[in-house]
Design a binder for these strands. Structure first.
Lengths: 138, 138
DNA sequence: CGCAAATATTTGAGCACATCAACTATCGAC
DNA sequence: GTCGATAGTTGATGTGCTCAAATATTTGCG
């Protein structure tokens, strides 16, 4: 489990780096930072700030600035929660949805995953998704 | 190639995120930032600043601060190039090598890749490594 | 009811990292 | 020897992150 695995680990972490690069390039092409792309990607439904922080496993104060900048760009809005006035819900604007779509198009266009044969893609899918209980953010 | 692949892309980019998280946690456990872990990981041989910038695909000025902080921590040293006085070569100290080893141990200990069955690991290796000509940095 | 504890968000300080433009030093070539 | 390329640094600026502290609101309990 220790020595023979070194190459396995190295290969996979290099792979992850390439995926990360794709992600960053696609975000840049849509005039987004990676963090911004992730946040608007979470907003298929309006979400309280705190929920965004929980899903990103980061400090709530971090979300404030992130949403500030997304709001400046006109991609999201903050609206009050109907019953709890402490809560602000973040929601995609029409432009935000459009931008997210652009990001996804760009990502699937440039993704290094396109270089894989269908057979390799199948093998990836049957090995990867079993990975642990991370689904929808702890 | 467009619609059915969406889930494929999503799954893999989530996977990459988990690998990234592992990397960050292992780095933190070795008292390193992710960027610092990457840099000292490149120093199996002493390398000019510019080469580090090339391998990280970033601006040379970025490397200056990164190496500054690594030097402050006693993990690397800058030494002059024997023939070209413009060049500074960055080299791991003994402590730097030790720290890198600690990082690698930690990474292989906590890696989410450990949750995969040997069969899944085999499938990963036979699908991933064919990915493109990125070997040793463009 | 009334007040203390918990919760949601923001603010501000501070650090790491990234890019860009400008600068210094050195090299290489003519 | 001077000029243009190259290596590295510096400074300005923006983003992302964490932490501690402040504000507003809700909740629960005597």
């Amino acid at each position: 489990m220790t020595s023979a695995n070194n190459e396995f680990f190295a290969t996979l972490y290099v792979f992850a780096e390439r995926l990360r690069d794709d992600y960053e390039k696609a975000a840049a092409a849509a005039d987004l930072t990676p963090a911004q792309a992730i946040v608007i990607g979470l907003l298929s439904e309006p979400l309280p700030m705190g929920d965004l922080a929980a899903r990103r496993h980061c400090d709530p104060s971090n979300i404030t600035g992130l949403v500030d900048r997304l709001e400046d760009k006109g991609l999201v809005t903050r609206s009050p929660h109907p019953t709890d006035r402490r809560v602000k819900r973040v929601e995609l604007t029409a432009e935000g949805r459009h931008r997210l779509a652009r990001f996804h198009e760009e990502l699937s266009r440039i993704s290094c995953l396109n270089e894989l044969t269908p057979d390799q893609q199948r093998r990836l899918l049957t090995s990867v998704p079993s990975l642990g209980p991370d689904t929808s953010g702890q």
